[in-house]
Design a protein around this nucleic acid. Structure first.
Lengths: 231, 231
DNA sequence: AATCGTATTATGGCGTACCAGATACTGTAG
DNA sequence: CTACAGTATCTGGTACGCCATAATACGATT
């Protein structure tokens, strides 16, 4: 074990990203940023030109995004950017609630001060970002908040699932955090989670986490249904 | 709307499975059936020959399986069949517990007799399959039991997540159901879920579902740790 | 003989060209 | 103005080739 760690420390960390991974990130970014809009067709050969890579790479990227749920494939028509159905979004929030609630409960039952400290770090990061109007910072710190929630109790698989689902609602997230009062209520709800964890109150931590997600879900639903008629 | 339905009814249901999907199913089957063992290298050109398709297709299939977690990609080495780590398996069972518990609770709160009827159908199917020693039937009926649990309350996304995770532990499942007494205890636990749903007892249904998964997890852990030294 | 450097091989990563089938568009003839 | 045929577009799929890298085998030098 310690030997393996020593090796890992010495290992020359060559950024051996394959072209495919780079392209994957680019396209995913383009989708979540809204450069490609939901319903847009993703023409393989056009993507080749825009990305400067071959069809082989583009096709693999499209397959990957398809299995992530960001891209849908119409038979004999080709891939399009997946539409985010409001029903689906609600389900994704519900699942996140279940899993984040579970993780919060586990954190509370673990009763480790490091967890509380790490969570509070992220939380002050969120507050500062809100104060500076740095929305990217809010997202990043929120993400790291949940990451510690999951990984401090070694729930990497659940964290992976949450991430997988989150990319599908990413542009929703960037809209909900801009909502009025979210800069106050969001951190307050998260502080409740941290408080319950500090008290070792598993039940309360779970409920607080689920409440927080439920609030986000409600905002997302409002945003989405307000936006729907405009399309 | 009715026009669309009529069209759908008339539509000639051509099995428009693309070659890629066929190959995907074949390889996935081969992995979960144990034809490819965990740790085996999956050499692209060999797979081309065995499947009778081109490298492009094989590569897309490998990417897909990679994002399903069935295949791992070693940098500069290539794809291998993913090893199922015991820790990961436990986490998968835990997530299933959370989601299936959620679905069971929703079913109970819905209070619809159709749900109970459908679940009992699957349950008798499981009992009959156990009686006939038809293990494939057990798996199929168990799957349909959970499918109704999720889809009758329109939780298709959660059902997708559960399916995604389940393929990774599929060979575990086929071992746990063969365990002694599982033919009695398994259906009994599931009957408890159905009972709670019939009573409209959401809390009880959730707990029963989580108990059932926990039991499966414990058996899987025993099987896996007994098997580990042999490797 | 041991070690170091080099050639070979296996394999994945990537690109290009080509064909078939489906679909959407377009222009022409009746 | 309509119907039909032809055409362009696009994906699905295949074949082939090139390059980079890792591992292994082999040979040369000290």
């Amino acid at each position: 074990m310690s030997g393996a760690l020593k090796d890992a420390a010495i290992r020359v960390e060559r950024p051996t990203k394959t072209l495919r991974e780079l392209a994957l990130d680019k396209v995913r970014e383009a989708i979540v940023n809204g450069y490609f809009r939901p319903g847009d067709r993703l023409v393989e050969r056009d993507l080749c030109a825009q990305l400067g890579v071959s069809r082989t790479v583009v096709r693999e990227v499209l397959r990957h995004l398809e299995s992530e749920g960001l891209v849908a494939n119409l038979p004999n028509k080709g891939p399009i950017v997946a539409q985010l159905d409001i029903e689906e979004a609600k389900q994704i929030y519900e699942i996140r609630g279940a899993l984040e609630g579970m993780a919060a409960r586990l954190c509370a039952e673990r009763g480790s001060p490091e967890i509380v400290a790490a969570l509070e770090d992220s939380l002050t990061g969120i507050r500062n970002s809100y104060r500076d109007n740095d929305m990217a910072g809010v997202l990043a710190n929120t993400s790291s908040f949940y990451q510690t929630l999951f990984t401090m109790v070694d729930r990497h698989v659940a964290w992976g699932v949450v991430n997988l689902l989150t990319v599908r609602i990413n542009h929703l997230r960037s809209m909900t955090i801009k909502t009025e009062r979210r800069g106050i209520e969001g951190p307050a709800q998260m502080a409740k989670i941290v408080d319950a964890i500090r008290r070792g109150d598993g039940e309360g931590a779970q409920r607080a986490a689920m409440d927080h997600v439920a609030a986000a879900s409600a905002i997302a639903e409002a945003v989405l249904s307000a936006q729907k008629p405009a399309e």
